[in-house]
Structures are given as structure tokens and as C-alpha cells.
Design a protein around this nucleic acid. Structure first.
Length: 874
RNA sequence: GGGUUGUUAGCUCAGUUGGUUCAGAGCGUUGCCUCGACAAGGCAAAGGUCAUCGGUUCGAGCCCGAUACGACCCUCCA
């Protein structure tokens, strides 16, 4: 069989994914094994796979695959959330294309379209995750609007309301005029923008005086109901209590005094618009001011504004300024930088707006969740996020959970004709509730609240309700899989989601939802810019996978993802992954070559040393990897395996044992090599599942159901440090001989004579044939004293001499030796200084002292050898 | 404004409880090599006063303080 010279991932990847699915390998059911559970951070149902998902899900897949190979019952639950704002926007857009306006539809009709959209386009991302190789249990796909899930959200709302934690209130909320809904504080992003500060003078009633205020939002003067100054500001003593006249609309407002005002900002006089500013609202409450709402829900001016009715708020700003100027009210404008809130979802400027919303009291709920992190019951990786979390939890605000949308979980609150409210699961229950709670009212026309709940109010139940832990408490799944092992997510949603899941976990399971939380970094392009749709700097994931293979994409993302730091993605890294696959592929071709040409023989070259060395090396790396896994240093694991395979296995081990052109390979060597190769594929499998499964299948004739993905993960064995150190000495010698060739422009084909002056001849004898092979040595001898007229190499206390007719540049040689001598002497001095320092000898630990003594002896021997070499050159 | 965090080779990053064979890796760069696994390759080389200043210590990339620049989060100055 001819094996292709380069590895081609596309068919191979599809083949193995289908095979794994076919064998039901990703599916998990509770049994007597230890569970290892991950719930996916549910992507938005409207989402498509981008770099962030790829990073996040590759890490989850790595952890799941590793656990599965360790014999744990690995369960990775996939799913999506319903994303009320985003989905509703998609549906509205779809309707617009069909010439249908949302306002012409009933709620029921709209929801029918929404489900149609969801069935047709929603959850594409789950298909895309398969391409990435994600080993999710696809029989367990959850959606936050599934029937049970829906019920769980309603159940929790009712329960929290019963506990007195949910209340309805009139509050200044963050209004998104585009989505036309309230948002929680967490959904508002503040951006520093260049604005203008407008100085506007208001005439004082019954006088020719003016009071000048400064504002960034001149359009809101139409809603002004007061002017506020600082009580201790002498400039305004005489004006307090008088009336000012709002320009253009001639409304008389009172000049009030409050210490809230900053005397030094602007003019020290503040216009107060209680309906459209959080602080003004507070002032308004305190001073019992009138509140005039001058905006419609879509951000246009309402009737109450009197002017510019129906015009957008920003258009009004443009129009009102010239008008104020024309009429002599505008004093001046100034450039200013200020922070403006934008909607997380629609990126429009948030309009503070007074409205009736539902809130969840967070303070008491948050307490166990704060403690969980403080006491390390849940561990954050990296731990720096602990501070961030504490900071937020200690100053937690009530959560605005209602949204003025249709797509989502409809708030189970009911109103009678008196505007009285009950909270109940359905109409029937609501009627009963009204009868007992408000028996005097007619309770005939009961209507349900029109609003839905914040999407996060459903996804905070995710780790519980994907196992139906809320709707069917105590069932077999929730008892077995909960708490889950690790959550892998982005730090951006630490408050939105992580904190709230922890809260819900303690409230409804009295138990944390996960043991560890691993926060990934932010994916940036190679210029360090955050990847975003608007910049268009995010590559098309499916194209990338198609072109390079999922393994390479996974490699490229992971190799540059230091724990908790941002990663700068560069397509070159994906190429590096592709090259790596190819390297492994070719190593396999070499090994297969031995098998197929019938080269395996009973006798053959003795490779005991090489096999022992690599066995130890492998064990050493396996142990190292284990500690990296516990520290979630995922990127380190990959680069460690990369070096192990490329440098140690391919460049050293295979070169050491590779038989000559027509020679055979011993059965012992062959078997050992296959075992090593298998172990390498196993440790790499979680990172690059496809190429490893393919190679695994080719290394031996496999039995039914004998797959790499479910093979037993190799355990680290005993490590003999001597074996490793000895091999390093030999490898260094080979390197130095190669370097000598390079420096002198000698062909690798030109064999050299090697004379060895060593106290450990036995070691050199053991490795003799390997040194001869890899360094191309023509004669291999031991000598008892330094050799004249030969190139000297010094490694620790061993000396090597290579007689060579090529001109050795004596001056250059001397300079090199002198340089090394100077360094070594300096080094020795520092060691001696240390050892003769009483305080060092007293304070340092025994093993450090021992090390220092050894350093001294080595350095002394080296200096002696170098000095001898120098004298021979003179 | 408050908080968290970072600044180590051209680039991206490792450097565990302070102890000079620890100043490292990968990529990139440079030179040589088509040698029967692999040019998506092989062999080798060059590259850093560990941001700056000061302190603690017998000893500091590592600990402490200040400065400069950056990142992120929070934030009611219109």
C-alpha cells in the first residue's frame, strides 16, 4: 500500500467523527464510574462559530476527552440559549423581508414565526461544533425554551416571588430604544466619547437676570422641572427658591439647592430632568419634583416634549442647538470627553427611562455564592478573577429581570381590572389566587404581564436544568452529574452568568454548580485588536477548518493561549498545526515502512540505550503534563507534547533506532517503538483527536471498538534521572560534533575521528554505535591524555579530540576558549564567594550547599581543561 | 475617579517557595543540506544590562516602594 507523502485531514476527520457518533462514544448515562461533567456555556441560538467559541469549546473538548480516556464517565452537555433580544431582532428582520410588521401581529402569531425561525436557522453553531471535533453528548442537547426548561424558569420565578425576593417597582432603568426593552446594568457598556458641553441660559422669572447651566444633552431641557445649585455656592445664594424659565417652552421651574451638585463643574448650576437621568431622578424624588417623560419608547420625542414631536433624540439635538443660539439662549459650547452607556445588544445609546419593571433582590442570595469563592469551594483559574468577583458581589445591585419582548419566558404575573397583581403558574391558578387574595375585586378580566424574563434569568439555571434538576429534583441524572466538574467560559460574563449560576446552585441545590471555573482569554488578531464582527478581523472558522483541518485549527488556537491571558491569533499558527500533523504522519510512514517491507527481524541493532532513554523521557513528560492539567495550563501541555514528539521522538529517538537502508529492525525495537508511538498519540489525542485516531488505527491491526478516543490514558512510570542525564551528555556531544562540522563547512558525509578522554568510558561504550551513526564517526577511540593538534570539545569534565586536517583558526579558537574561560572563572568566583560567606553557609539549606559545592568542582575541572587546551594552542 | 493586572530575545510567551551550567521555549531571521519518513523537511547559528529608579538581602527576573507606558473591570460629575 502506498501511503501519501502528505497528510490530508478533510476526509479523515469526517470519517472519524462519523465513526465515533456511530459507536455512541460521546453518549453518557449514569453508572458506577466516577462522573466527569461539563455543561457548555450555551451559545446564542442565533450564533455562528467564531474564534471565541472555537477556543472555549476546544478546551472543554480537551478536558472531556482526557477524562474519558482516564476511564471516567465523561459527559459534555451541549445546547443553546434563546437569546431573546438577538433572536427577536432576527425574527423582526425576517418578517420585514416578507413585508410583515411586528406591530400587526398578535403575540401568538409572532411566536409562531419565532419558532419557525428557530427551527430553520437556530442552532447552526451546534452543527459547526461537530466540525471542530467537539465530543458533546448530542442526545442531551438542551434549549432554554424547551418545555421542561421553560417550566423550570417559571417555577423559579414563582418560588423567588413567594420568598419575597422578586418585586415589581417603578425604577429608572436602562432603556434600549432600538430593542425597545429595559436592560440590566450588566448589559450596558460605557464608552468614552467626544461630546460637547452646551452652556444655556435660563431667564429668571420677573427679572432680566439669567442663570446659566451646562449640559451635554440640550434636547432634554424640554423635560426640565428644576434647576439645582449647591447651597454653599455664593454665586447663587440670591437665586435659590426663585423661578427660572425653560427656554423655548417657557416652563417655569424652581431653583433648588442640593449638595449633590459639584460647584466646580460647568457653571455650578445643574438642570434637572427627573424622567431622563438617574441622578436627576433621585433629586426629583428628594425634592418632590414633577417628572416629564419627553421620549417615546423608540427614542423619538413624545407629545410631552411639546416641540420636535416624533423626531429622534439625536436629530433633535442637532436642531435644538441652532434654535437656542438663534434665540440667544446658547452662551457657548465646549468640547468634553464623557462616558456614555451603550446597549450590549444593539449598541445604541442607552436612554435612562422611568418604568415599571420586575426586580430580584440580590443581597442575601449572593452571600453563599460569595463565600463559595472566598473559601475556595469553587476555584477560579486564574485566581485573579477572585478579586473581580468579590468586588462585584460585595456591591451587588438588584437585578432588573423583565424585558419588553415576546420571545422568552413570559412573566407569570397576572393583573385584574384594579391593577392588583398575583403571581401564578397559569390562568387557573391566578384566578384562584385572586379569589383568595383580592376577594372584593370582580377578577373577571385577568390579564398576564406582557413582558418576558431576561435570558440570563433562564441560563443561570443551566447546570441544574440541563439535568432537569429544577423540574424533577432528585432524578438520577442530576444526582449523578451535579455538581459538574469544570466550567470553561469567557471572563466577560463572570457577572452575567457565572456569578448567577453559583447563586442559583446554592439556592436550588444547596450545592455549588461546578468545582472549577476556567476563564479563557480574549481572542485578538495578531495586531492585538479584539476580534469582532464590526472589524471583520475574525476568520471564517468553517473555511479555516476546511482548508487546514480541525486538528490544525485547534492546535493554532491552543498553542498561543496562555492560561488566563489574551491570545493573539495568527493563521501561521494553524499552519504550524498542519505541519505538525504532517510530521506525525511521516513518522508513521517511516514506522509502517519497517512493517511492510518485512524488515522486522529476530536479531538487529541493539537499541537498549535509546529505548530506555525514551521510556524515561516519556515518563518524565507524562508527569509534567499531569501537573499542567491540574493547573489548567492547557497551552503548556500542548507545547510540551509538541516538543516531545517533534524533538525527542522524531529528531532523536527515531533517528537513533532507524535501521540503515537495507538493514532490518529487531522485533524488540519495533515493538517498543509502536508502544511509544501509541502513547504519544494518546497524550496528543485530546488536542488533535482526528490525526491521532487515524495514526492509532494504522499503527496496529485494531480490534472491533479499539479506538484511541477510548483507550486507556498512559500513566507516568518511574523516572531514572541518571538515564536522562547520561543521554543528555551523549546528545550534547553529538550536537557539538555537528556544530564543529557546520563551523568548518564540512560535509555531513565526511566521517570524523573521535578520541575520548573521559572518566566514564562505559557510558560512551554503551552509546558507541549511536554516536558513530548520528555524528558520522569513522573511528571511535579512548585516550588517556590530551591530544595535540586536534579540535578539543569539552562537556562537563569530559574531553573530546577530533583530529582534523582542515585549517583550525588558532586565534579564533583561542578567543573562544578565553571567552568561555572568563565566564567559567567568573562563575567559579561567585560560587566560591558564596561558599566563603559565613552568612550564606549558615542560612542556606543543605541541598543548596551541596549543589554549590558540586558547581565548584565542575567549574574547577572545566577551567583546568580549558587552560590545558589553551596552552596547547600557544 | 476607583480597582485588578501586566511590562523577560524581532514576535508570542514560560520562568514554581529569592540561590549565576536558568536568563529559557516556540515562531521568525541567518548559514549549510534534496541524506531512502517528512522542503509543510533536516542540521546548526545569531538575538535579551529580564520597562525605569530606589530599597530589603550574603544573594533579586523573582520580595517591597515609586515612576513610565499598556490592558481589563467598575464608576451618578451634568
Amino acid at each position: 500500500m502506498e501511503i501519501a507523502k502528505t497528510y490530508t485531514p478533510s476526509e479523515i476527520e469526517d470519517k472519524w467523527y462519523a465513526e465515533w457518533i456511530n459507536k455512541n462514544i460521546f453518549h453518557s448515562e449514569p453508572d458506577d464510574r466516577e462522573p466527569f461533567t461539563i455543561v457548555i456555556p450555551p451559545p446564542n441560538v442565533t450564533g455562528v462559530l467564531h474564534m471565541g467559541h472555537a477556543l472555549n469549546n476546544t478546551i472543554q473538548d480537551i478536558l472531556i476527552r482526557k477524562a474519558r480516556m482516564e476511564g471516567k464517565n465523561a459527559c459534555w452537555v451541549p445546547g443553546t440559549d434563546h437569546a431573546s433580544i438577538a433572536t427577536e431582532a432576527k425574527v423582526v428582520a425576517m418578517l420585514r423581508e416578507r413585508g410583515i410588521a411586528k406591530r400587526d401581529l398578535s403575540r401568538e402569531q409572532f411566536l409562531e414565526y419565532a419558532w419557525e425561525w428557530k427551527e430553520k436557522y437556530g442552532g447552526i453553531i451546534l452543527q459547526q461544533l461537530r466540525k471542530l471535533g467537539a465530543s458533546c453528548d448530542w442526545d442531551r442537547v438542551s434549549f432554554t425554551m424547551d418545555e421542561d426548561y421553560y417550566n423550570s424558569v417559571i417555577k423559579v420565578f414563582i418560588d423567588l416571588h413567594k420568598k419575597g425576593l422578586i418585586y415589581r417597582g417603578t425604577r429608572m432603568v436602562n432603556w434600549d430604544p432600538k430593542a425597545q426593552t429595559a436592560l440590566s446594568d450588566e448589559e450596558v457598556n460605557f464608552k468614552e466619547v467626544n461630546s460637547k458641553l452646551y452652556y444655556i441660559q435660563y431667564p429668571i422669572a420677573g427679572s432680566s437676570d439669567y442663570i446659566t447651566i451646562a449640559t451635554t444633552r440640550p434636547e432634554t431641557i424640554l423635560g426640565d422641572t428644576a434647576i439645582c445649585v449647591h447651597p454653599d455656592d455664593p454665586r447663587y445664594y440670591s437665586l435659590i427658591g426663585k423661578k427660572a424659565i425653560v427656554p423655548l417652552i417657557n416652563r417655569e421651574v424652581t431653583i433648588i439647592a442640593d449638595t449633590y451638585v459639584d460647584k466646580d463643574f460647568g457653571t455650578g448650576a445643574l438642570k434637572v430632568t427627573p424622567a431622563h437621568d438617574k441622578n436627576d431622578y433621585e433629586l426629583g424624588k428628594k425634592h418632590q419634583l414633577q417628572s416629564i417623560d419627553i421620549f417615546n419608547p423608540d427614542g423619538t420625542m413624545s407629545e410631552a416634549a411639546q416641540l420636535f414631536i416624533g423626531l429622534d433624540r439625536f436629530a433633535v439635538r442637532k436642531k435644538i442647538v441652532p434654535e437656542l443660539e438663534e434665540k440667544g439662549f446658547l452662551v457657548k459650547t465646549e468640547d468634553i470627553k464623557n462616558n456614555v452607556g451603550y446597549s450590549e445588544r444593539t449598541d445604541v445609546v442607552i436612554e435612562p427611562r422611568l418604568s415599571n419593571q420586575w426586580f430580584l433582590k440580590m443581597k442575601d442570595l449572593g452571600e453563599p455564592a460569595l463565600q463559595a469563592i472566598e473559601k475556595n469551594n469553587i476555584v477560579f483559574h486564574p485566581s485573579k478573577y477572585k478579586n473581580l468577583y468579590r468586588h462585584w458581589m460585595e456591591d451587588i445591585h438588584d437585578w432588573c429581570i423583565s424585558r419588553q419582548l415576546w420571545w422568552g419566558h413570559r412573566i407569570p404575573a397576572w393583573y385584574n381590572e384594579n391593577g392588583e397583581i398575583v403571581v401564578a403558574e397559569n390562568l387557573e391558578e391566578a384566578q384562584k389566587a385572586f379569589q383568595t387574595q383580592f376577594p372584593a375585586a370582580p377578577n373577571k378580566n385577568i390579564t398576564q404581564d406582557e413582558d418576558v424574563l431576561d435570558t440570563w434569568f433562564s441560563s443561570w439555571l443551566w447546570p441544574e436544568e440541563v439535568f432537569k434538576g429544577i423540574t424533577h429534583p432528585g432524578n438520577a441524572d442530576i444526582s449523578y452529574y451535579y455538581p459538574t466538574n469544570v466550567l470553561v467560559t469567557a471572563p466577560e460574563i463572570i457577572f452575567f452568568w457565572v456569578a448567577r449560576m453559583i447563586i442559583a446552585g446554592y439556592e436550588y441545590k444547596n450545592q455549588k454548580p461546578f468545582n472549577d471555573v476556567y476563564f479563557t482569554g480574549i481572542v485578538r488578531d495578531k495586531l492585538g485588536r479584539k476580534m469582532s464582527k464590526s472589524l471583520g478581523n475574525s476568520p471564517d472558522m468553517l473555511e479555516l477548518i476546511e482548508k487546514n483541518g480541525a486538528d490544525s485549527v485547534r492546535f493554532g488556537i491552543l498553542i498561543c493561549s496562555p492560561a488566563g491571558n489574551d491570545l493573539l491569533y495568527d493563521e501561521k499558527l494553524v499552519e504550524q498545526g498542519r505541519n505538525f500533523s504532517n510530521k506525525i504522519w511521516n513518522a508513521m510512514r517511516l514506522v509502517k515502512g519497517w512493517q511492510e517491507q518485512g524488515k522486522i527481524t529476530a536479531e538487529g541493532e541493539d537499541n537498549t540505550q535509546a529505548i530506555q532513554w525514551f521510556d524515561n523521557k516519556l515518563n518524565q513528560v507524562l508527569a509534567e503534563i499531569e501537573t499542567y492539567y491540574t493547573d489548567f495550563k492547557i497551552s503548556e501541555i500542548l507545547s510540551t507534547i509538541y516538543k516531545l514528539i517533534w524533538d525527542d521522538f522524531c529528531a532523536w529517538y527515531l533517528e537513533l533506532v532507524k535501521p540503515g537502508r537495507d538493514a532490518g529492525i529487531s522485533i524488540q525495537t519495533y515493538d517498543a517503538t509502536i508502544v511509544f508511538f501509541e502513547k504519544l498519540m494518546q497524550v496528543l489525542h485530546p488536542f488533535m483527536p482526528f490525526v491521532t485516531e487515524e495514526i492509532w488505527s494504522l499503527l496496529r491491526n485494531r480490534k472491533e471498538n479499539e479506538y484511541c478516543i477510548i483507550s486507556k490514558y498512559p500513566k507516568a512510570g518511574e523516572i531514572n534521572k541518571n538515564t536522562l542525564a547520561n543521554a543528555d551528555r551523549i546528545f550534547e556531544l553529538i550536537n557539538k560534533i555537528r556544530g564543529f562540522r557546520n563551523e568548518n563547512n564540512l560535509s555531513p558525509k565526511e566521517a570524523l575521528e573521535l578520541n575520548i578522554l573521559s572518566t566514564d568510558e562505559n557510558l560512551h561504550l554503551q552509546w558507541e554505535s549511536k554516536i558513530i551513526k548520528l555524528a558520522n564517526i569513522s573511528s571511535f577511540n579512548f585516550i588517556k591524555s590530551p591530544m595535540e593538534g586536534a579540535k578539543q570539545l569539552v562537556i562537563k569534565t569530559d574531553e573530546y579530540y577530533i583530529p582534523h586536517q582542515a585549517d583550525i583558526n588558532v586565534e579564533e579558537e583561542k578567543e573562544k576558549i578565553n571567552k568561555e574561560l572568563a565566564y567559567t572563572k567568573g562563575f567559579l568566583n561567585s560560587v566560591v564567594a558564596k561558599l566563603s560567606n559565613e552568612r550564606f553557609v549558615q542560612n542556606a539549606k543543605a541541598d543548596i550547599l551541596e549543589k554549590e559545592n558540586a558547581k565548584r568542582l565542575d567549574a574547577e575541572a572545566k577551567i583546568k581543561a580549558l587552560e590545558e587546551a589553551l596552552s596547547r594552542l600557544n
